[in-house]
Design a binder for these strands. Structure first.
Lengths: 388, 388
DNA sequence: AGAGTTAGTAAACTCTACTAACAATCAAAG
DNA sequence: CTTTGATTGTTAGTAGAGTTTACTAACTCT
């Protein structure tokens, strides 16, 4: 009788639904996610404990768990060795050994990266492809090949593929524009899905990164992550959900004008864009100039502090308007740590209504190299398991 | 048998729930809301039409509608006079005649306002109280009295009370700080609820306003409304939901520093706050000075343009980061319309990555006088009927 | 008048979660 | 060492929600 439960729903005339009416099975799916989520974040526990945590009866939880056992999402770990009266509990946990995820990071300079990750976001295997000056369809082919390679490296059931890519990505996983690759309306999600047969999710790289930090890092439900690389991008979590934007372009802050006192010319045609102050190439150029000056050390310090100030000037209205609790920077640690980070923090406080304790904390992202890979994995976990 | 359905749920041991498990009845409640919502926005239709719109079967919709008929939320309007084959349809509509809402606006200068509104946001009755220099508990008592007066004016079943107040309001309807009234942690929602016996919702005035504009105005799911009055506040809709912020202080942009070139001293102690440029008192002061100059007309123009520019400088990073589709200004039309609005629009485009067509539209809110009253009503409709 | 179409309802079935009751298994008290 | 109490997990039966199937009612068109 349990076996009947997995059969696909009768899709009927239910194709042209506009409103999202709730069926009993939707509630069931939600409760299954809650079980997975609880186990994923709180670790192994008994059915009875799950029942108390979720507010569902033991009977219902038992049924949910047996369903998840069949699907391979959770496993029994044997009796708890806790000593107390009563029948000993059987611990169940999310199937940490038997499930894996592919994460991909297409936003690095001249290299496409992929990895096999476990459910806790640990990287188990890495695969890479260097790309020289390929663009367009050539890059797509490299991505598809790399994905297949990564899939072959998995040692357990794969839940799906997550991708963080430069450019603007719509809700259907279509990369509408990615100047670096000269992509225009590339249906990356569908291509990967057809190629690998696995559920796939595609987001902007900074959006993936903020998912990673939101899940494994601080975990505030109102935060921004600014990713500093070739350009400057960001991902925002507002009220616990990622902001997508009206045109799927939320987080695109690289070409917002900062301040009211000019600045250098940007390749986009405007002056004073955030990217002209903050991108890695811009910073390195400015630091090289500073190194040639009479007082190289203090000159470098000024460069970094000014960059931090500029970022804070752009962020202050965002932090204020959204009442964000955290500002996280992700990028080359040697550039961001120290004067730049300090300047961001200080300038941000100066420009916001002063309060004690400070309503916003500023820090670096842990593990910046792999943050996109892990964020991409989080996207899959969230989508497939409702976990994170 | 239908009568049994309304009995309260068996609350059981379900008090210490942490996770929000879904019960079948939650799904039912959601579907009931969908019916109300569809009727509210699309107008009268038959059960069969509802069925097609929602993707539920006619049988289920019939059951939902009969439930709503019993509760008085919808009414039958008689046969549709459409001519076509088949049994004539019986139109049902949300009970526009038999349901009303109280809206309150505490953010006006020296006057507390309340109104009885219908489900379409039309104002049916108004009540006001002028306040001189009352603060603290005195104002609370005035509010409670005013609410009772408004309740007495209602001519149909009241769904609840919505309030837009200055200050910061947390999710429990507690006004944590409201300097104008010298309020600190005033549990306004609970006080009103106890006093009137009606479900009550309290939000910041700008947040209420953005609800009104989101529902009755443009309706973009990614927008900001800036309310210019004694101070400057804002409300944001991100992905269709109102941004609350980590400390319930989202939208508080009055004291964000704007630009990098100083500005006048603000009462908060900083220089260059948005309020020093944009609030009604600041603008009127600057316009008075302009009037005394040699070329009064062009001087006034400069004042207004500069204010608009400053607002756009502060908004540009927010619009860019959130990819907002609409910026709406609400306040005295004679100040905002013309040069100020034009300057906001122009400066915003200059400071964002140029695109065609422009991704963001800038406009004035319709009906600025009553926008908080209507927004407060929307909050109740949303909360009680799931409508808007 | 007959055929075809559409609206609304009734009965029976499925799925979900609930209550009630029970067997298994342990610790602690007597 | 037995009894008592506590706790876990399962079985059996029930109520709610939505579905399928089948029906009646009421209209247009030929």
């Amino acid at each position: 009788m349990e076996a009947l439960r997995d059969r696909p729903r009768t899709d009927r005339h239910r194709t042209d639904r506009t409103g999202a009416a709730t069926l009993p099975s939707d509630g069931r799916a939600h409760n299954l996610s809650l079980v997975r989520q609880t186990l994923h974040s709180a670790g192994p526990m008994s059915r009875a404990e799950l029942s108390r945590t979720l507010g569902l009866t033991r009977v219902t939880v038992s049924d949910l768990v047996s369903d998840l056992l069949e699907r391979g999402h959770v496993v029994e770990l044997g009796q708890s060795d806790e000593v107390r009266p009563g029948k000993p509990a059987i611990l169940v946990d999310i199937n940490r050994q038997g499930l894996q995820v592919i994460g991909m990071d297409l936003a690095e300079n001249s290299v496409l990266r992929a990895a096999v990750l476990d459910l806790d976001g640990n990287i188990l295997e890495r695969v890479e492809r260097t790309i020289a000056s390929e663009t367009g369809r050539d890059v797509v082919n490299q991505v598809l090949g790399l994905a297949s390679e990564a899939v072959a490296r998995a040692t357990a059931t794969l839940l799906g593929i997550g991708v963080g890519t430069p450019g603007i990505v719509n809700a259907d996983g279509v990369v509408t524009t990615a100047p670096n690759f000269e992509w225009k309306d590339v249906a990356l999600r569908d291509l990967l899905q057809e190629n690998t047969g696995l559920p796939t999710l595609v987001s902007n790289d900074a959006d993936a990164a903020v998912h990673a930090d939101h899940t494994f890092g601080g975990g505030s439900d109102d935060m921004v992550l600014v990713k500093i690389g070739r350009g400057v991008g960001s991902g925002l979590i507002v009220g616990g959900r990622r902001a997508r934007g009206a045109h799927s372009a939320a987080g695109e802050i690289g070409h917002v004008t900062v301040g009211t006192d000019g600045g250098t010319m940007c390749k986009c045609g405007k002056t004073g864009c955030l990217e002209t102050w903050m991108s890695v190439p811009s910073l390195e150029r400015a630091l090289a100039e500073a190194a040639a000056s009479s007082e190289p050390e203090s000159a470098a310090d000024v460069v970094l502090r000014e960059a931090g100030e500029r970022l804070a000037i752009a962020l202050a209205p965002v932090v204020g308007a959204l009442d964000l609790a955290e500002v996280v920077l992700s990028g080359p640690r040697e550039l961001l740590e120290g004067p730049l980070l300090d300047a961001v923090q200080q300038t941000l406080l100066e420009r916001l209504l002063h309060q004690d304790p400070s309503p916003v904390s500023v820090r670096l992202a842990a593990d910046a190299q792999d943050i996109v890979l892990r964020g991409a994995a989080v996207m899959v976990l969230w989508n497939q398991l409702g976990v994170a």
